[in-house]
Design a protein around this nucleic acid. Structure first.
Lengths: 277, 277
DNA sequence: CATAAAATGTAACGTAAAGTACAGTTTGCC
DNA sequence: GGCAAACTGTACTTTACGTTACATTTTATG
C-alpha cells in the first residue's frame, strides 16, 4: 500500500506495449476519475478496446478490474481525509525531488500578481479594448512568441490587431499608420533590445499609448510607457523563465475578452462561419 | 450541481424513515468511500437491506445507483484535482481581490507536474538531446508560439533544430528529410487540428520518434507518439490556458541545456562572437 | 521477404450487481 | 385493540459489466 498507483504506472509504463501505454497515459491525464468508471468508458476515452484496459490493469498487478478500482478509491479517500499530507505523500515520488524550476516559476507568478493591482489591470485592458483604435504588439528575442500568442487570441475578439513581426525595418514602416488613439504593447526583458527601445521611443513621439510588460529590473522602455507591468523571471536554470509574463498575457486576453463580450460575440460567430466554408 | 451530496443529505435526512436515515448516517460516517462500493456492501455496512439503499439514493434525487456513484466520484475528483474552485468559489466573498485565472493556472501547473514522472522527463530530454539527430518542432493554432519559444532557446544549445512554421504544405516538404533517428515534438490541444494529425501520422510512418505535448483529453496524435505529456488547460476564462504547457516547454529547455552543457558551451561562445561582429 | 511472435480488437459468455414485486412487519391513529 | 398506512426485507428478474476465447493485425527477426 506504500506505493501509489500513479507511481506504479510510472514504473511500468516503459515495459508496456503501445495501446496499454495509451491507457496509462489516459489514466494519468485524467487521474483518477477515469479509472473509477466502467471498463467501457475507460477504453472509449483512451481509444483502445476493453481487453486492453484489462490487460493494462492486470499488468499493474491487480487480479481484477474491481480490485484496481478499490485501490484507486482507497487512495482517493485517503487524500480527501487529510488534504495536507497529499502534498507530502503523492507529490514526491520516490526520487523525492520535485521540480525546482516549477516551484520557482510558481513563486514568480504569485509574486508578480501580488504587485499587480486590479486598477492597473483595468486601465490596461481598457486601453486594449478600445475598438476604435488599432492595437500593436511587439516582442523581443524570447518574448516575441508571447506577443504572437496574445495576437492570436485578440485578433479573434477585436479588429485592428497587428503583431509586429519579422525584420525591424518592417515594423518601422508601420509607424506611419500609428497615431494618438493607438496602443502599443511591448514585451521586453533582459537583455533588453535596442531595437525595441528605438521603436518605442518613436511610437511615443507619435502619441501612441504604450503598455510595457517587462521583468523586475524594468526595461528602459519604461521611460516611454504609459503602463508598466513587471513580472519576475528568475529561476534556477541557465535561462530566465517567462512563465509569469505568459500568464500576464493570458490574464489580459481573458479580461479583454470579457470586456468585449458583446461586440465580439458577433465577430466570433462570423469567423466560425468563414472557417466552415 | 452546486450543492454537494453531503449537503443534500443534511437537507433531507429529517424527512427520512429510520432505515434510510441509517443509510445516510453510514454514508456520512464513511464518506464517501462506502457510497462508491456496491449496493450490497453499502447495505451490509449500514445493517439494512439493499432496497433501502436504493430508496435512500432515489430520495436524494438520483435516478439510479450508478448515477449517484458518478456524482460522488465527480465531487471527489473535483476536490482532488482542482482545489481552485474551492478557493475561488467558496473562499472568496465577492471582492475580486485575487486573480482567479492565476490561481487556476497555478493549480493546473502543480497538477500537471504531479503527473509528470522524472523518468518520463528524462526519456524525453534524452531524445531531444541527441545531437546527431535532427529535432523538429510543430505547434497548433494557439500553441505554435510555444514551439517558437522552445525553438528560440534550443537553437542556441544544439544544431539541427527546425521549427516547422508557416503553411502546411511547407512542413510537408520537410518530411523528406525526416527519418528514424529524428525527433518531432508536437503541441496539440483542443480543438485538435487535423493538419497536425496528418503530419504526425506521416512522420511516424517514416520512423520519426514523436513527443506529444497535449491537454488532459489527449490529442489523437497520442496514437502515434512515443512520449506523451499531458498538461491541464482548464481555467475560469473563455479561453483555455496554455501556461502549464509553457512551463513544460521551459522545463524541457532547462533540462536539455543541462544535458548538453559541455557540448553547447563552445557553441554558445561561438554564437556570442558572431553576434558581436 | 518469409515466418514466428506479440499485440490488439471483436464478439460472445457468464455472472455479479442493480432493480422490482410483493409479502411481512412495524407504526400511528381513532 | 383494530385498522390502515408506511416502512422494510426476501426472493426473484433483468440489466450491463467484466471477462475470455479467438481471429486479425502488427511488429520483430533471421
Amino acid at each position: 500500500m506504500s506505493t501509489s498507483i500513479s507511481e506504479l504506472i510510472a514504473e511500468k509504463i516503459d515495459a508496456m506495449p503501445a495501446s496499454e501505454r495509451r491507457a496509462a497515459q489516459t489514466l494519468i491525464a485524467n487521474y483518477p476519475l477515469i479509472g473509477l468508471r466502467t471498463v467501457a468508458e475507460f477504453s472509449g476515452q483512451a481509444g483502445v478496446s476493453s481487453p486492453t484496459i484489462l490487460r493494462f490493469v492486470s499488468r499493474l498487478g491487480f487480479q481484477s478490474y474491481p480490485e484496481f478500482q478499490s485501490a484507486l478509491q482507497e487512495e482517493l479517500a485517503a487524500q480527501v481525509q487529510s488534504p495536507w499530507n497529499r502534498t507530502a505523500t503523492i507529490q514526491r515520488p520516490k526520487d523525492g525531488a520535485t521540480f525546482p524550476l516549477m516551484e520557482a516559476a510558481i513563486e514568480n507568478i504569485r509574486e508578480t500578481f501580488q504587485h499587480l493591482s486590479a486598477q492597473q489591470l483595468d486601465d490596461v485592458t481598457d486601453a486594449i479594448s478600445r475598438n476604435r483604435s488599432r492595437f500593436y504588439l511587439l516582442g523581443g528575442r524570447f518574448t516575441d512568441p508571447i506577443a504572437t500568442y496574445m495576437a492570436a487570441h485578440l485578433k479573434i475578439v477585436r479588429p485592428g490587431v497587428t503583431h509586429l513581426a519579422g525584420q525591424e525595418s518592417q515594423w518601422r514602416d508601420q509607424l506611419i499608420d500609428m497615431g494618438k488613439k493607438d496602443v502599443l504593447l511591448v514585451f521586453d526583458i533582459r537583455r533588453y533590445q535596442d531595437s525595441l527601445l528605438r521603436f518605442a521611443e518613436k511610437a511615443q513621439a507619435r502619441g501612441v499609448e504604450i503598455v510595457l510588460v517587462t521583468d523586475q529590473w524594468l526595461s528602459p522602455i519604461a521611460r516611454f510607457a504609459r503602463h508598466v507591468i513587471a513580472g519576475r523571471t528568475a529561476v534556477p536554470s541557465p535561462w530566465d523563465s517567462s512563465a509569469a509574463l505568459f500568464l500576464i498575457a493570458e490574464t489580459l486576453i481573458a479580461e479583454v475578452t470579457r470586456k468585449l463580450e458583446q461586440s465580439s460575440a458577433d465577430r466570433i460567430r462570423d469567423l466560425e462561419q468563414l472557417r466552415d466554408n
